[in-house]
């Protein structure tokens, strides 16, 4: 599904290398988790994959189902099936949540030469998806993320994911700012989307999210590289011993 090979990335403005050769393959139907200490490059990886400005790929490649995504505009990546759940979802005053979602869905469908969804069908679709995430009509009517609590913002991200049905989902610290109940709700939303045809890359600091979203593979990232990969047990090891032991071991 998602294949990253020897990816090197620098900050455009300061010529500072952040990713120093990331190799990672996420297969369809699998959940991969990336853990790592602050500054290891986890979030940069998610930004680069989604196409945010300010990063320069100096070496390596990233493909989605064989297609080079690094050459694509952010909207083309989305239409190709890539989705990033933001660590800090953006507030957009004046743009209604529903309008936003419908515009996004239809723009993607148009880009894929699929028929646009009618207003009535969309309403039906969103009501059903929103209900599962405990998102009420009021939240759907409000401007995108404006005045939303931390938990509401993250639930809104998952709602977008549920509506857009991407092939490859990247979750960037989706657990940050969530209490236990909200985390359960969000995880439930993610688990409901787990599917043989869909890949997940879950970026997190903490093991606790992985109690709810059970990964198939866990990677440890440090200083711009994946330094260790393993099964779910690796996350537990981090939880018990911290990153220091693992980093010392691979150094």
């Amino acid at each position: 599904m998602l294949d990253i090979k020897n990816l090197h990335v620098s900050l455009e403005e300061e010529d500072k290398a952040i990713l120093k050769g990331v190799d990672l393959s996420v297969e369809a139907g699998k959940v991969h988790a990336i853990m790592g200490p602050n500054g290891s490059g986890k979030s940069t990886l998610s930004y680069v994959l989604s196409g945010r400005d300010g990063y320069e790929v100096t070496k390596g490649s990233a493909t989605l189902e064989g297609e080079d995504i690094l050459e694509m505009e952010p909207e083309e990546r989305a239409a190709a099936g890539l989705f990033l759940a933001f660590q800090y979802p953006v507030e957009i005053p004046g743009v209604g949540n529903m309008t936003f979602l419908r515009t996004a869905l239809n723009a993607q469908r148009k880009a894929r030469d699929e028929e646009e969804v009618s207003a009535a069908d969309f309403l039906k679709l969103i009501r059903e998806k929103a209900k599962a995430l405990n998102i009420d009509a009021e939240m759907l009517k409000r401007p995108v993320n404006v005045g939303f609590s931390g938990g509401e913002k993250k639930r809104n991200e998952i709602l977008q994911m549920a509506v857009l049905e991407p092939k490859m989902c990247i979750l960037d610290e989706t657990d940050s700012g969530l209490d236990v109940d909200a985390m359960k709700l969000v995880s439930h939303g993610v688990n409901a989307l787990r599917d043989a045809g869909r890949g997940f890359l879950v970026i997190t600091h903490y093991q606790r999210l992985l109690d709810h979203i059970k990964p198939d593979v866990v990677h440890i990232m440090a200083d711009g590289r994946i330094v260790k990969s393993g099964g779910p047990d690796l996350a537990l090891e981090v939880e018990t011993n911290g990153y220091a032991d693992i980093l010392a071991e691979v150094a």
Binding site: R52, E73, A79, I92, V95, F100, T103
Partner: peptide, 23 residues
């Protein structure tokens, strides 16, 4: 930031900018 957020959801730049203008 808002423009990127819209684009990352598949809304093309022009359309995304128009949405923000209307907002």
């Amino acid at each position: 930031t808002a423009l990127f957020y819209l684009r990352s959801r598949g809304v093309p730049t022009g359309e995304a900018q128009d949405l923000l203008v209307l907002a």
